[in-house]
Simulated scan of single mutants.
Amino acid sequence: MIKSNFNGERLRTARLYRNYTITSIAEELGITKQMISKYENDKTVPSSEMLLRLESILNFPRNYFFENDNENIKIGNTYFRSLASTSKKDQEVQNIKLVYISKIYRCIAEYINFPKLNLPELSEVILEDPEKASLEIREYWKLGNNPITNMVRLLESNGIIVSTNKTNISSIDAFTQKQEFDGEDFYFVVLGQDKGNAFRRQFDAAHELAHILLHDPFLNLNEVDKDENREMEKQANEFAAALLLPKEEFIRDASMHPADLNHYLYLKKKWNVSVSAMTVRAYNLDLISYNQYHYLQRQISQRKWRKEEPYDREVAPSSPILLKKATLMLLENKKLSGPELLDKLSTKYNLTINSEEFEDLIGIDRGTLLKYRKDQSAVIIDFKK
């Protein structure tokens, strides 16, 4: 049932989500920017004809524009890779996606037992030392000094909600956000799937774990200057490298031929880390000198490995499975049909979206929800005698 009051904020979020500016959506609709502004600020309500056009252009069901986000949720800041070069608009678009994913997760969690959040509490001393923090989490998760074959699965198995989507924004590789609801903490990590590189995804996932463990989830990032932000990114990179390449084991491996790119290429298959990241780690561990490090960097450039290294195309990037698997469990076990799941999301969580949007957000094939409709075969008809 359509709610009675048009919500201008929902028009604004839909516009941003579909990458429209006020100017471009006004031109598409053939109206003024001032009229769009009035709609979005609840100064006037679109006519029925205008609503139809908004639905068509923005590809959101009509109900979406009449819903309110009135849930009692505390949302932390969002840590973006390359925050300084990511515009406020691009940040907001990705935050909207996180709100949608969060609602979908909570809707599904009514029926499915997801892994509980399993993170250590780190002391102040360890929080300031990425190397020590990486050892702490390896010990807490009982990883030993072995290579981590799948960072995405490791995060999911320890209660972190992971999703992928096409950010279509060159400055955003991944981002993380904390949310508090129903007295519990939840961490959401979104990994961009634009790059399609398994080794980069490993590092991105480890980098986002660093933000979860090391950095204040409710820090006001608007008050953080460029130097502080640069230092947080440096810490996250150091943590990711230390986690994926544990000091003692990596020194033992790399010290055989520390200034030979081909040796790092051999180690790439073992540690699931790019050659570029391993050379940085080797330099930071004093395995190679400043001159040797820059010589290796020049070689990487000469071999055109900046964008793509050997083996990059041979290994598919790992994808999150929990949201996808949980949804399929609901559908296949007939706990809910596809339309019923969308209806529950709409009526209880105030998020009316089409089936394709839902499927794209959690990474299942398009058409899946509508394939699982209620079975109508139990209705029996026959000719009159």
Rank of each mutant, 00 (worst) to 15 (best):
F60V: 08
N146F: 14
E67R: 03
L117W: 10
F80A: 03
L117V: 05
N68T: 11
S157G: 05
F80L: 06
G76Y: 06
K74L: 15
M50D: 00
K89F: 13
E131C: 07
E121A: 13
T149Y: 08
R138N: 12
N95K: 15
L154C: 10
L51I: 13
I148S: 11
L135F: 14
L51S: 11
I73H: 11
I73C: 13
D42S: 12
S48V: 09
F114M: 01
K132Y: 10
Y64G: 15
F65H: 04
M50T: 00
G144D: 09
K116T: 09
E136M: 10
I126S: 01
P147L: 15
R62W: 04
R53K: 14
R138I: 11
Y100W: 02
S85E: 15
A133Q: 11
A84S: 13
E156M: 08
P147A: 15
F114P: 02
K43Y: 10
F114D: 12
E92V: 10
N118V: 06
L54Y: 01
E139P: 10
K97H: 07
N77M: 03
E110S: 10
V45C: 01
K43G: 14
I112A: 02
A84D: 13
N95P: 04
Y140W: 13
Y100N: 03
N150V: 15
V45D: 04
E67M: 14
I148C: 12
I101T: 00
E128I: 02
E110I: 06
K116H: 07
A84P: 07
Y64D: 11
A84C: 10
Y79M: 10
Q91K: 11
P147Q: 12
S48P: 04
V99R: 09
S48W: 07
N72Y: 15
S48D: 12
